[in-house]
């Protein structure tokens, strides 16, 4: 038997299909559910480095901290996964990544600024 689930992770939706057989319950737990492969998939999603959260083309910082480095300027072409800025929070460096390809329309922070989690770091246009 197969069952489909829709899993919501932040602003992402993943389709997960779980296969199991009713007879397999006692005979072989391997064919029952493959929890390992599923949980690995989940883990992958969680393990991603903290990227910015998109909000109408804006890169949002998921964490409070001090901006120690701004890596882009107005007009810089960025790819998904490029570092936009580096924050220092709790004595740790945290990199903020771009969530999509595009061109930086506006940089909203400067080095030395203290920003709160949820505030915008930059705006990305097409």
């Amino acid at each position: 038997m197969r069952k489909r689930f829709k899993v919501f992770l932040g602003d992402r939706v993943i389709d997960v299909e779980i296969e199991y057989s009713l007879t397999g319950v006692t005979s072989s737990s391997k064919s029952f559910i493959k929890p390992k492969s599923i949980s690995n998939k989940f883990r992958e999603f969680f393990k991603q480095r903290p990227s910015g959260i998109s909000l109408k083309g804006r890169v949002i910082s998921p964490i409070s901290g001090r901006v120690i480095l701004v890596k882009v300027k107005e007009g810089t072409a960025v790819k998904k996964g490029d570092v936009i800025a580096v924050l220092e929070s709790m004595k740790t460096k945290v990199e903020i990544y771009s969530h999509k390809d595009g061109i930086i329309k506006k940089v909203l922070v400067k080095e030395g600024d203290f920003i709160k989690s949820g505030s915008a770091v930059a705006e990305i246009g097409e």
Partner: peptide, 10 residues
């Protein structure tokens, strides 16, 4: 710990 040990103030 689920997210590469990102700091979590708040």
């Amino acid at each position: 710990p689920e997210n590469n040990f990102t700091p979590s103030p708040g």
